[in-house]
Simulated scan of single mutants.
Amino acid sequence: MDEKPQADPEPDVNISGGVAGGGELAPFEVADIGTRAGRVVARLGELYWEKTYGGRDAFECLVRTILSQNTSDVASQPAHDALLERYADGDADLVNALADADHDELAETISGAGLYNQKSKMIRGAAAWVREEFGSEAAFDAFVTDEDPNAVRETLLEVHGVGPKTADCVLLFAGGQPGVFPVDTHVHRIARRLGIAPAEADHEGVREALEGAIPPEMCGFGHTAMIQFGREYCTARAPACLEDPDACPMADLCDQVGVYPETGEFVDPAEAPES
């Protein structure tokens, strides 16, 4: 498709790195999209950005994603920056620096991200694992980029503190793997509200539904654009359609599962009565 200017450039305060994180125009043809979920993601791309991901340092991406757990990008980004400032000194290998880091010092450095004692332990453990299993950041990066994505995912899930979303973010933003759709709280909520994933699905169920229905080259920006949509329009407590049925740019593609504009009420999609 022809490149077009992005109406809303991807924020830099974002697990993907935003505009600073790179990315190229995602190759897809709207006419080839045969699923409703694919059409939803195409609309989100029109609203925000249509790009592929990949090429970020795999270990730094792993650390950044651990920092983002249970907190916002606005809170975790400064913690990430502070960590790099303290531990990525010149040509020093970040893996070695964090594997040998003092727990309390690291916890203080990343305190702005919340749950800092837990995250300090997770990060130090992940660094020690990378050093023991791969020997260096470069070798870990090659593993994430070159090996079978399913094998990489299963390996990452064995690491303490690495859940499905964290593993998938490393595969997407570092490995550049197509067909990977990480599911965070925004994606879990919105995909079910829209009706493109089963209302009762857990995070893994939503991931499986989206990855099975959306063209692989669209999954990356589907993830980031859906998060942005969740921040701007379909928030957890104030979906835009409750204030004004015409306020949401996805209204014509949304099943509004669990959202009732006529009464101003909403429930979790899993609790919505079947129509």
Rank of each mutant, 00 (worst) to 15 (best):
E3I: 13
P5G: 06
A7L: 15
D12F: 00
V13G: 00
N14M: 14
G18T: 06
G21E: 04
V30N: 11
G38D: 10
R43S: 11
E46K: 03
W49D: 15
E50Y: 10
F59Y: 10
E60H: 00
I66S: 08
S72D: 03
H80M: 12
L83E: 02
D91T: 14
D91C: 00
V95K: 06
D102Q: 12
E108S: 13
T109C: 14
L115G: 01
L115E: 05
N117R: 15
Q118H: 13
K121W: 03
R124S: 06
A126W: 00
W129D: 07
V130F: 10
R131W: 08
F134V: 11
S136V: 04
A138Y: 03
T145Y: 03
N150V: 14
A151M: 08
H160N: 15
V162W: 04
V162M: 05
L171S: 10
G175R: 02
G176M: 08
V180A: 08
F181A: 01
V183R: 04
D184V: 02
T185C: 05
T185K: 12
L194D: 07
A197R: 05
P198N: 11
P198Y: 11
V206Y: 07
R207M: 00
I214D: 02
P215E: 14
G222R: 09
G230L: 09
G230C: 03
A240M: 03
P245A: 13
P249L: 09
M250E: 07
D255K: 13
Q256I: 02
P261L: 03
G264M: 10
G264K: 09
E265F: 00
F266E: 13
D268V: 12
D268A: 15
A272R: 05
A272E: 10
